[in-house]
Design a binder for these strands. Sequence first.
RNA 1: GCCACCGUAGCUCAGUCGGCAGAGCAGCGGUUUUGUAAACCGCAGGUCGUCGGUUCGAAUCCGACCGGUGGCUCCA
Length: 720
Amino acid sequence: MIEVRLPDGSAVERPAGATVADVLQSISARLAREAVAAKVNGNVLDLGTRLSGPQVELTALTLNDPEGLEVARHSCAHVMAEAVCALWPHTRLAYGPVVENGFYYDIELDHSLTPEDFLAIEAKMQQIVKENRPFRRSDMPRAAAMEKLRAEGNPYKIDNAQRADGDTLSFYVTGEPGTGHFEDLCRGPHVPSTGRIGAFKVMQVAGAYWHGDASKQQLQRVYGTTFADKKALRAHLDQMEEARKRDHRKLGQELGLFFLDPLVGPGLVLWKPRGAVVRRVLESFILEELLKRGYQPVYTPQIAKLDLYRTSGHFPYYKDSQYPPIFESDRARLLNALWELARASNADRATDAELALFEEIAKNHADLSAAGYPAQAPMDERLKRIRVWLTQEDGYLLRPMNCPHHIRIYASEAHSYRELPIRIAEFGQVYRYEQSGELSGMTRVRGFCQDDAHLFCTPDQLLDEVAGCVDMAKLVLHVVGLKDYRVRVGLRDDSDKYIGSAENWARAQDAVLAAVKSSGMNYAVEPGEAAFYGPKIDFIVKDCIGREWQLGTVQVDYNLPERFDLKYIGDDNREHRPVMIHRAPFGSLERFIGILIEHLAGAFPLWLAPIQARVCSISAKSKDYAQWVYDVCRAAPLRVELDNSDERIGSKIRDAALMKIPYILVVGEQEAADKTVNVRTREGKQYGNYALPQFLAACAVEIATRGEMAPGEAGQTPPT
RNA sequence: GCCACCGUAGCUCAGUCGGCAGAGCAGCGGUUUUGUAAACCGCAGGUCGUCGGUUCGAAUCCGACCGGUGGCUCCA
């Protein structure tokens, strides 16, 4: 007998070998009917699983449990895969996991799936659901299973099997084994039958590389989702739709904050006057904070010699994600053209165009001619050689990072340990040639401004300084009310993209971990997420459709001080190497404000609002008074607008509310007579009449405290 | 960069089978003088992203390019 303990504390006894379904049936017919899987001793299992052991803990899972829904989503992926295979029999399945809010299945199929195909797939899925075939699990010894998979000849499944742990591999047949029903290598678990997968929808299709490797073949990734019932599915779709209304690209257009102009260039933001206000106010806020904390603002150029970035390691390491350098010599320009040509070809030997170009260069440059062009070599090899030649050419680069400039400021004079830490700050505009497919509104752009600073300190000071930077990153998120963020500690892995010695990395990673531990924050350590010169602490938030973006960052760096041979004189009168910290609490102003727009749905608090109040006259009779109110407010100063049009008051209020202006000041003959303004908010809240100085005083408090405090709560009683 | 989809007036969008390019909002002119989320009338506004092709005829079909969107890859 097995003792089965249930979540309510009770227990039942069942004979050994009883299945999960048997147990549920013995407890409650309804539970047995509704369950799709069960959690047994912490593991989610099929209802058909036979129980063993003297005692188990068992929790039934239905579609209303998150874990139950996950099982259904996985099962739905199988049903979708079966449907696709039925419609396109030569489909090869690769990999189909559950993801947040749904699932996907990567497939290899020569026909490109389109949204029209989704309907056919869904219809086929519906048919499979109607047949209500059972999901049957069969376990096979590894060797036999591999044999079977090799016979089937699907390289993806063979690969999946090779990666799976254990001596046995499991397959699921959707129906009866041996009858040709759909079968898939899968560890499970699954719902009992195809009729139990809930309300589903095929959402979209996208390209995805096998194992996420861009050099490998691209598969089609078909996304779908399923929910407990149609109502829950509908609610989810509605919620997504609602979330899109907050999209900063949409609101940026509607509220006239910024735009991206194809004529100016993709990924290059034009801040309109209203958007510029938000940015300026945030910059003022952070500048004030920097000064309080002993930072020293500087200004440096947005372009510099290639050699600067060769020393830092940014060029040519990131050559392909930088705007092309401006070369000074014809030879360099031609070499760069050769680079582009070679990169565009994927042949194992040089194209005629490459050879012709090289000949032209070599004609005038004997040294290159002698070195020869490795025309027979594969493209990689040719690129490598061109890169070496290019690294000897002089030129200028639009700066992708501010740190080399700040480092040169530090290096411009000798430093004593008594001066440290030195904190050099700049709102630094940088340019990165991001891949075209990556650009996205303000969150991923090619030109952006970092609220950047570089701290130079002694090894002893490092912990305190990192902690101070973390504190500041937390502060800016707190001030604007972004509470929903996560912290990622990015460490190195064993890839070869990192520069610097193992000892430096060890010290830097230790410092970062110690600082984040002492901050008391929750964080996740992620190997492979470090910068190429050092580990980092990133503050990550989600946008309106759930994509994650890095905002603030704090990075510890032992490597750049070494590359630039930075020094300070210690109390021992000898030269020492400072440690550097790169940090930007906002990250990029563009991205931060993009995310902020979405977080606030465009309704900025008073201190950030592009327009803080709009004066709306009731009729022509109150135009003069409205003008006077406007003048006084502007001089206060308040960012104010005047609507003295001949529209009706309802229309004026609607216009102002749609522009998300915090305070709408309605003035008519009544207000003109007693020198008041009638205050209402964009949300429709009415505060009644205020003497103008009273309103302005309340606003001043609200702005100074960066608060949500409203005039009615500012300690003033409106006159009657 | 790769895969898929999209691009019509300043904005949001309609445009059937290939047969004279449409609406609402915004703008401009007029009427109205208005009390808390849309007054009324009129006018003007278009290289249908660009280039090329098919066709008697292209916003519509095909191709290339540019730009955008969603993923993938990348992200100093």
